[in-house]
Amino acid sequence: MSEQIIGWDREQMAQRAAQDIPNGAYVNLGIGIPEKVVRYVLEGREVIYHTENGLLGMGDAPAPGEEDPELINAGKKLVTAIPGAAYFHHADSFSMIRGSHIDICVLGAMQVAKNGDLANWSTGNPDAIPAVGGAMDLVAGVKTINVITQHVTKKGYPKLVEKCTFPLTGQAVVSRIYTDLAVIDVTAEGFKIVELAPGVDFDYVQERTGCTLVAA
């Protein structure tokens, strides 16, 4: 791998994902880079953020002195509620998810297969403590599942693959992937390049992908 930074950084990946969130959308954001998407929603678009522990209308982190340990997000970080927010219990919250009322979910990934299979909860290592949270409910129920992830692992292995080797979170659930190198759609023909990051060409992305890509 080249040592110089090529492609988009984490902020730019979040910024690119935010461009695809339309006005009026109800959105659930996963932990990590997806959390950054909230900063980049385009001006003039009003978006309502859902957090599965019981809040629609999640706002920013609280100002010092305004913290309430009973007002947190799914990552258990302190948050605020915007004017017009609503609280509800867990079964109602997951009715919003499972009942396809949430429009978009942006999640992280360990692997995505070319048919849209997602693995993002477990390496399958028998020594690890398994923990799934709401990921399987989100991918089964939310209308559009988008993924933000580095194109390859820290060790340089492709995360976009022919078939996931890690245990699945859901089957054929991912619509679009934002990586540091490209925006890629899951299509009937496989992974299709929608957009390449500046300075990145098709062959560069292909070399770092575990299956054959379809050009834009």
Binding site: H90, I97, V132, M136, D137
Partner: peptide, 18 residues
């Protein structure tokens, strides 16, 4: 759990609530 001294039933969060 690692020592095998407690049992775990892992349930997706929405399935648990429902």
């Amino acid at each position: 759990y690692t020592k095998g001294e407690i049992e775990l039933e892992l349930v997706p969060q929405g399935t648990l609530a429902e």
